[in-house]
Every structure is written in structure tokens, then in C-alpha cells.
Nucleic acid binder design. Structure first.
Lengths: 241, 241
DNA sequence: GCAACATATATGTGACTTGCAACTAAGTAA
DNA sequence: TTACTTAGTTGCAAGTCACATATATGTTGC
């Protein structure tokens, strides 16, 4: 925009602006299935429904910083892989006022996910039920521990659906999968992550070859402990994330 | 966010909000190279620099609608493929005040691109010089007609770089390329689009097979006109976009 | 009407990738 | 020592892709 256009068409004091928020999809794995951390809303609107942790963007913080703050304050998580997902701007997405929300995807290794659940924040885990294959897209459901679908607040079902879609799309050509694993992991664990996200079984030798040929993995020389059978080699990311 | 959190932590009247804008990457092809339409800024800040067309998001319009409006009002383009790219929220991206901008990618077929250039809006075309291969990523330059790099305003160089990156990534598995072509086109034209975006030559028979095997294309039965050699078959998209 | 020409379109082939099944290796447990 | 379970490997068929080559079909010039 030119400054003339700007001054002529928009007086920042005179025209009200949409509010700007960030919402976080806190995604991890539970029992080999994708899961998210949600907050139960106690007040209307959408009281009793489940919502993504979110917060407003301060004037003095970037979007990424706002997402980190929400991660810390609302979920009690110090560190996680965070990436911007999409910005949702429907007029009626929040009944109170116009709120535009920048959705972020946070990927939590199993341990962080469990710690966040046990922490101060009143978070609950919900299994993501994805009824479509590949990158078809479509709605997803968040299931309670008993397998019942949870009612989601606002447009958060759409945000969850997009999160799964994006993750599936990036899984094979990027290193996001490692954000869901501890620092050291076996190839089987890596395959389990891929299978959980994609929702389909993968061929073991082919997967192994592909991963090792990529050159991202470095064997540690140590093996996993505590198994009652042959322990697998532990790997780590060669170029740390 | 819970409503309690919301009311406790954020009084919409008391706390100032970032301004929210959309910026458009108007992308087309010129002489087999990717090109964008830019506006020269006449006022400070960044007077004399080149900027993406943009505008503020109204309280009563969605992000997509705001992008359509900018497309119409600032570029005089009635219709184009529009998709959200990324939301830029650095604190100092605009020296006047805090502005968060949702960047959109608009894809223009050659004809729309030329019409926009000849229209009312004072747009100029700039060739995109992409000095990296594949999806490496990195900075891009906008070149004037004489091949000199143009000084870009704000963080618009970053936005352009991301636009190229995204387009390259989506080119092969989505149908975005067709948004850069007229309704009817030859396979050679389609290949030219791919080569221009990717910045590398492609193998003809392989490209042809891949495209035809996808099942997206439908031969029209007619051929291109005006060639001084064997005219190629014209295709259209089977499932219109 | 006929060759020259330029490009469209099709075919053939070897290198590489992927999916699957069967195999060997290495640990625990009894 | 043997049974068992999972880790990790090997071999091969099917499919994909890049490249070279061959054929087809329009225009242009004579």
C-alpha cells in the first residue's frame, strides 16, 4: 500500500481493528495415535466445549513470541517445535467480537506431552480421529479417553483438520517427525511416528532404507534398554534441529 | 483461551491491538520467467521503493475478502487464484506502527498480468530472480526491465521469497500451475510454466506422461492456431478449478 | 504438388526407487 | 541349549523417471 492510500483510507484511531490472537495445536502421540491437548471452556460462549490454548497478540511481541508465551503460560511447556499453520479470519468465528487467529502447530515428544498433562494447566488429552486417507483432507474428530467425540469450540475443529493435513504433507520431505521423538530413538519408533501421523502401516525395509539414505540419521552406537528381546540401535539427528 | 482468561487478561478497549493488513504477491510469467506486479511508493517510509499491493482488513470482511478487495481496488484485477501464504508479524516490519500482515499469493495468467499492467493502477512488472535451486529457499531479487535489482519496501523481499518457495513446493502435486495458464493450453505451455517456476529445464516425454497420467487434463480436440509448424493439441482442465 | 523444416507425439531402454517376502542376527527367558 | 521375539538384511519383481531416438503432422517455400 502507498502511504497516501494508507492515510486516506485508514485512520488507525477512527477505524476499529480486528483483535489478533494465536491458537496452538499441541500435538503429540498417545498409544500410537495422534493426540492433542485441549482446555475445557468454563464460561460462555461455548462453555463446556473444548478449545485450543490461545491468547491475544501483544503490541510488543511477534506472532512467534506470542505463540511461545501461550505455550509457556497456558500449557506450561518450555520448549517445543512451533510452526505457523494458517490464519483464520472468518467473521463469526468468535461470537464476542471479531478475532483473527494465527494458528500454530506445536509438536511435543511423548514425554513433553505427558508432562504437560500432569502439570498445573487443566489440559486434557484427546485422540485425533482422522477418517480420511493421505492428503484428501476433511473433518477430524477429537475423542475423549472413552472414545466419545468431544464438542470443540469456535472453528477449532477446522484448525485441527488443517494441522493433520499439513503434518501429513510435510512428514516425508521434512524433518518434522523428529520433533515428536526424544533426542535418541530407534528406527522402529520413527516408523511408528510416521504410521501414527499418516494413519497407514508402512513397509519396514523400505522405510528403513529411505530414512538411512537421507543421511539425516546418525547411529549413536548404543542400544535401547529394557526390552525382553533384541534391543534396537539408537539413532539421533545428524544435524540437530 | 477460556473466557475468564480472556476477560481477565485482555480488555479490548484498554489494550491497543496491532493493525491487520493483507499484502498480495501478484505473480505471473513474462518471457518465460516468473514476474510480480509492484507499486512504487511515493511517500515515506520507504519512498521510492517498491511494494506489494496491500490494504487493511476491515472489521466486516474476512481475510480472503480483504485480499479480493485489494486485488480489485489496487490492481484492477477482477478474478485470480488467491491463496493465503503466511502471516508476517515482526515488530519493526513497518516503521509507522505495528502492522501484522497476512500475505496472499495471487496467480495471474499471462493475459491478466498484461491487462493489470496496462490498467489504471500504476503497477510495474518486475522479473523475479531466484538464485537458488529446488526448495532450498533463500533471498530473491526483483529486477527492473533493464535487469537492475529493485529496492523493495518493508519485508516484502521475504514475502516474495516465501511465495516462490511455496509455489515450487506445490507445483508438482497440486494444480496451481493451471492458474498461470489460459483456459485452454498446450502441453508445451504447461511445461513452460513448470520450468519457469522451478527454474530448471524438464524432460519432455517424462513431463508429458506424468501430466497425462494424472488424469487432470482433457484434450479439447482442437489445436493451437498461428504457428508456422505443426500445431499442438489444446487441453483444458478436466475438473475445472 | 512436393520437399524441407520445425515441432508434436510416441516408443524403447537403462538407472533408480519402492513394495514385498523371505532370510539372518541378536538379544531375553526358561 | 532351545524357544521366542524383534532387529536388521537381502533378493527380486513392479513401477517410475530421465534420456535418446523414432515417427507423425502441420506450415512454408519452391
Amino acid at each position: 500500500m502507498s502511504e497516501a492510500d494508507f492515510l486516506a483510507g485508514y485512520d488507525p484511531a477512527a477505524f476499529p481493528r480486528p483483535a489478533l490472537a494465536v491458537d496452538l495445536v499441541l500435538l503429540g502421540l498417545r498409544d500410537g495415535r495422534p493426540a492433542v491437548l485441549l482446555l475445557e471452556r468454563s464460561q460462555h460462549p461455548h462453555a463446556g466445549r473444548w478449545a485450543l490454548p490461545g491468547g491475544f497478540v501483544g503490541l510488543d511481541e511477534t506472532l512467534d513470541k506470542a505463540a511461545e508465551r501461550v505455550l509457556r503460560e497456558k500449557a506450561g511447556i518450555a520448549l517445543a517445535h512451533l510452526e505457523q499453520l494458517y490464519t483464520f479470519g472468518a467473521l463469526d468465528r468468535d461470537p464476542r467480537m471479531r478475532i483473527v487467529s494465527v494458528a500454530y502447530l506445536a509438536l511435543l515428544p511423548e514425554r513433553s506431552f505427558a508432562e504437560a498433562l500432569d502439570g498445573e494447566a487443566p489440559l486434557a488429552a484427546a485422540i485425533l480421529d482422522v477418517p480420511w486417507a493421505g492428503e484428501t483432507g476433511g473433518p477430524v474428530a477429537a475423542l475423549s479417553r472413552r472414545g466419545e467425540p468431544l464438542a470443540l469450540a469456535f472453528d477449532h475443529a477446522d484448525i485441527l483438520a488443517l494441522a493433520v493435513l499439513r503434518l501429513r504433507g510435510k512428514l516425508d520431505y521434512s524433518d518434522v517427525a523428529f520433533a515428536l521423538l526424544p533426542e535418541q530413538f530407534t528406527l522402529r519408533q520413527l516408523q511408528d511416528v510416521h504410521e501414527a501421523i499418516l494413519g497407514t502401516p508402512l513397509n519396514k525395509p523400505a522405510f528403513r532404507r529411505r530414512m538411512l539414505d537421507r543421511g539425516w540419521l546418525k547411529p549413536t552406537g548404543t542400544r535401547e534398554a529394557g526390552t525382553s528381546f533384541r534391543p534396537a540401535e539408537l539413532y539421533r539427528l545428524a544435524r540437530p534441529r
